[in-house]
Design a protein around this nucleic acid. Structure first.
Length: 135
DNA sequence: GCCAACGTTGGC
DNA sequence: GCCAACGTTGGC
């Protein structure tokens, strides 16, 4: 089982939007590194939903429910997307500021490469962020 | 195949 | 609104 962090601007697509839809295609990713991560995802993997630009915080947990398949918003046939479903909203969002300040998260890929929209998390990082959301 | 110019993303 | 990071494009 692998863990991920996926970003979306909440005024475009928020965690609550995902809850309302119950399942959604994570489309529109046009970055090779992010695409590679999505191709690595397996059914049952868990991902944190992070709100970029507005909020700047991890807000919920979702599950990969369908593995990589052609992105329905792409005509070229070059890009893939996965499908995700909401699992649990965090009791309290965990802000970027909190994550940056935490030594346990110092090596998080997303902190080192802020523009990457889909990034891996270690199990320890994932669990640590969950613990922070309960404090 | 290199690299400068330019565009986009995301944080501040 | 600005800027840093970084990906892409195009000229050579």
């Amino acid at each position: 089982m692998n863990y991920w962090l996926m970003k979306s601007e909440p005024d475009v697509f928020s965690y609550d939007d995902l809850v309302a839809k119950r399942k959604a295609e994570w489309d529109g990713v046009r970055n090779h590194a992010a695409q590679l991560h999505m191709k690595t995802m397996r059914k049952g993997d868990l991902a944190l939903f992070y709100h970029s630009n507005i909020g700047l915080e991890a807000v919920g947990i979702m599950e990969i429910v369908e593995e990589a398949a052609p992105d329905s918003t792409d005509q070229s046939g070059k890009w893939i997307a996965v499908h995700v479903a909401p699992r649990q909203k965090l009791a309290k969002p965990v802000s970027l500021k909190t994550m940056k300040a935490d030594p346990a998260l110092a090596d998080m890929v997303i902190l080192r490469q802020s523009r990457l929209s889909v990034a891996p998390l270690t199990e320890a990082e994932f669990n640590h962020i969950l613990a922070l959301s309960k404090t």
